[in-house]
Structure formats: C-alpha cells, structure tokens
Amino acid sequence: MSIKRNCAVLAMLFSVSMSVAGAEEQLRVLKDPNCGCCEKWLKALPESLNVSVEHPIDLTQQKRQAGISADIQSCHTAISDSGFVFEGHVPPALVSRYLEGDKSTNGIGLTVPGMPVGSVGMEMGSRFQPYTVYEVKKDGSIAPYQQVASIKQQKKLSGGGD
C-alpha cells in the first residue's frame, strides 16, 4: 500500500472516530415516578445528553447490578450508553466532564450519596450543605472526585453561573 493511500485511510479512520466521539451521549435514568427532586435534576442536565427515564419496580436491585452499593445510594441512577453510572445529585457539569474522559482508569461513575440540601434538585432557598462527589471504582470502592463547598460553586457546576 502506498504512503498516499495509508494517509487517506488514516484520515478516514480519524474522521469516523471523531464523529463517534462527538455523538450525542445516551443517558438512561432510573427513578421512582413520584420523586420531585429527580425531576429537577433531570431538567438541569445539558441538552447534549439524550435522556430517557424509566420507573423500574426493582430500582434497588438495578442499582446494585450497576455497581452502586447500599451505602452510596441516592434516589435516582443514570447509566450512560458507554456504561458509566451517575448516582444521585451529581452536578451536571461533572457528569459531562466524566463522560468526556476525566476519570480514573478503573472508574465506573460518580455518586453523591444521600440527598444533600442545596445539591442539584435539592435546592432550598439559600440553605446549602457542603458535600463530596465520589468516584465509584470497579471494585466497589469510592474515592473523592470533587468537593462542592459553597452554593456559588454549586451554581457553576449546575450551569447556573454565579
């Protein structure tokens, strides 16, 4: 094969891989149909995500199957088509950042255990409880991913500006 042809093939492969990388990410959200905070979180997600919502009867079991143990669970679970899991009120900017590759080599997703006051979907006026977003690892362990220390920082991470 000539050098010219090799370059053409490489250019074509690069073009295809770039179009796949830029494809709209699919996010399947599993939640209780009566949960209002989940609805608020869904509305805060970036439009670049193609989101579908399901209301499974076996929500807890599906969380476990996705690698989310009971001690790091929250009210809803989002699973990307690339297999990453986002549990609870993870700020939208961090979901995007993780999907773009800002993760450890053995990470499977992010979690905000519980339902911290002031997190995305759990806004209560000016009340705010600092919280940590954790990365969930393949072995089930967690490690701090980002601390959210103030309502101002929370607004930036949720697309709300200053």
Rank of each mutant, 00 (worst) to 15 (best):
L59R: 03
D102L: 04
G107E: 10
H89I: 15
P116I: 03
G161T: 10
K4A: 12
A149M: 01
Y134W: 06
Y98I: 04
V133P: 00
E24A: 11
L30Q: 15
R97C: 08
W41D: 05
Q153W: 05
D58H: 05
V85K: 09
V51G: 09
S158F: 12
L13C: 12
S150T: 15
C35I: 11
T77P: 01
L27K: 02
G140Q: 00
G36A: 15
K103P: 02
V29C: 01
A23M: 06
A11V: 05
S2A: 08
E135Q: 07
G101Y: 04
I151T: 07
K63P: 00
C38W: 05
V95M: 13
R127A: 08
C38G: 07
A44I: 14
D102Q: 06
F84P: 01
G140C: 02
P91K: 11
F84N: 02
E54G: 15
Y98Q: 00
G161V: 10
V90A: 05
S19N: 03
S104A: 12
S69K: 00
L13D: 12
I72S: 01
G160H: 13
L27S: 04
P144Y: 14
T77E: 02
K155V: 11
K155W: 10
G36F: 10
I68H: 00
M115A: 07
